[in-house]
Amino acid sequence: MNVPPSFVIRLLALGLLAVVIQVAAVSQISIFGVSADLSPLVVMSVGLLAGSVTGALMGFGMGLLVDLMLVQTLGVTSLLYIAIGYWSGRLRELRDPAHELIPLGMGAAATAVAGIGMALIQFLLGVDAPVSFLLVQQIFLTVLVNSLIALPVYALVRRVLTPALPEDPRRRRRRRYTTGGLSPLKRPSEGLGGSTGVLSR
């Protein structure tokens, strides 16, 4: 697959901007006592739009950037975001979901994976302090808040990436169906402006 340089540049800019906005503004806005987390939503959106390999690469890069900028243990967030990007991409490759609410469900799942995965890794690395049951509530609330913003984030990522996305036969086929191209319900002659048949009436 040929990847246009403009696509790579857009991915890099998107990842950088998302992390900077997250740290400088979004994480300081409290909704229901928690902050929204843009990063798993952006990785999920890239996976859904560009496939599993791009999703996994974006997940790794963005996770590494988050760990570097936030002075966290390197590799933890990358590991989680690779999984989010890869499986979002696989969903697209295997099912090609077209429903408008898919990003909402995937956003919730991605946030849950990030929250629960981070908890598991932290437990594996060792936690000395007592752990409150409210952690579960916090993860649930973060999932809820992220679900609310998943659709706008997905729309924004799609708007940024679509002009530069590598050509994909599946997307081309779907576009043809929705823009009046050849359809199984039409005869080839209709598409070429031939004589009107029963179906065209």
Binding site: A56, F60, L74, G75, L79, I82
Partner: peptide, 22 residues
Amino acid sequence: RRRRAVLALLVAVSLILLTAYF
């Protein structure tokens, strides 16, 4: 094969970073 190789490579790099940093 390429997809799986990329995934395995990224996971391996993450684990190496995590272990080394920790």
